[in-house]
């Protein structure tokens, strides 16, 4: 119980700090929403008028406090650029990016675990070396470039999907997910390679532990040693690592959305930055932060379920 409370407090603090930093950064970069809205030909008086209307002449801290108060009480305000409530924009875009991120995460698990198991059958064996070469290349490829490659292979050459023909989920849930599989692959592949590398070294490390020798001396086969002893012990650091790459998954999703014309948070975020749409940007950043913090809390809970030593400490 205290564990959960501590986590919640830490999550709140993280979101608060990140949003405060975003707000500060946003006010340092040149240009503001008023000049963006007024356009290049506007007179300084017109810009000043808009500024007054948007409440941008108030001091920094009162503006931040105003946003924070609204965010906490659930009133997210209106987007300066679109004039619509931020809440409705989020309702529309957030599920798209979350589905993409979720799909990517699932793919990472499905790709990396069997691959790591395959490579660790023999240290420096042929599969180990081949996989090491592939993962090294795959880690080094940026995901937007991988997205272009995937479009080329799966859309242009194999004609498995039509790039750019995004299917909204209101239209067809199946079509929506089927389209997102390809951008998810672009997000998942480089990160899978990282997870394979991590899990591989964790497995080899565990294989050298003394309890493995005990298991062999009890008459366990090497398969049983792996499944019953090594794997579970190697999964613990790997789960922490998975928690660390959740931020990468979200970041990757936002970039890859551009390549595949997926109308998710990525575009919204870009337009919010370009138009200096302060209420929208603040809220988007807070939500992404919240998602990462939440995912890491889930990771901590998962670890405490697997590892009895953590349970005592918590």
């Amino acid at each position: 119980m205290t564990f959960l409370l501590k986590r919640l407090a830490a999550a709140a603090l993280t979101v608060f700090l990140v949003s405060a930093l975003t707000f500060a950064a946003f006010n340092i970069i040149p240009g503001d929403a008023a000049s963006a809205m007024a356009g290049a030909d506007a007179t300084p008086e017109q810009v000043e008028q808009i500024r007054e209307k948007l409440g941008m002449n108030r001091p920094l801290h009162t503006r931040y406090a105003g946003w924070l108060k609204g965010f906490v009480s659930g009133d997210l305000g209106d987007s300066l650029r679109f004039g619509t409530p931020v809440a409705s924009l989020l309702r529309e875009k957030l599920p798209v990016t979350m589905t993409l991120a979720g799909l990517s995460f699932a793919m990472i698990l499905v790709i990396s675990f069997p691959l790591a198991l395959l490579t660790t059958r023999r240290e420096n064996g042929i599969t180990d070396r081949a996989a090491s070469a592939v993962t090294t290349v795959s880690v080094s490829v940026p995901n937007f470039f991988l997205g272009v490659l995937i479009i080329w292979v799966f859309s242009l050459a194999l004609k498995l999907f039509t790039a750019g023909a995004y299917v909204p989920r209101e239209q067809s849930a199946g079509g929506f997910v089927a389209y997102l599989v390809f951008p998810a692959l672009a997000v998942a592949l480089p990160l899978s390679a990282m997870v394979v590398k991590f899990l591989r070294s964790a497995i080899f490390e565990q294989k050298r532990e003394a309890y493995v020798r005990t298991a062999y001396s009890e008459g366990s086969s090497s398969g049983r040693v792996l499944s019953r002893h090594v794997l579970k012990n190697a999964v613990i650091p790997t789960v922490t690592f998975l928690g660390m790459i959740i931020g990468d998954i979200l970041g990757g999703s936002i970039v890859v959305e551009q390549v595949f014309s997926v109308p998710g948070l990525g575009r919204l975020l870009l337009s919010a930055v370009n138009s200096r749409d302060f209420p929208l940007l603040q809220t988007l950043v807070a939500y992404v932060t919240l998602a990462v913090v939440l995912a890491n809390t889930l990771v901590d809970i998962a670890i405490s379920v697997i590892d009895p030593r953590i349970r005592v400490a918590a």
């Binding site: 309890y211 020798r213 005990t214 009890e218 008459g219 366990s220 002893h229 590892d307 009895p308 030593r309």
Partner: peptide
């Protein structure tokens, strides 16, 4: 033969047991 007819005890009592398994289950393993 291992674990049934010929068994071993090693030096490191701290690391010779699987940290994630209950003691009873580990004794039951052989």
């Amino acid at each position: 033969l291992r674990g049934s007819d010929i068994t071993m005890v090693f030096q490191e009592p701290m690391s010779s047991l699987n940290p994630l398994m209950k003691v009873g289950s580990q004794i039951a393993e052989p």
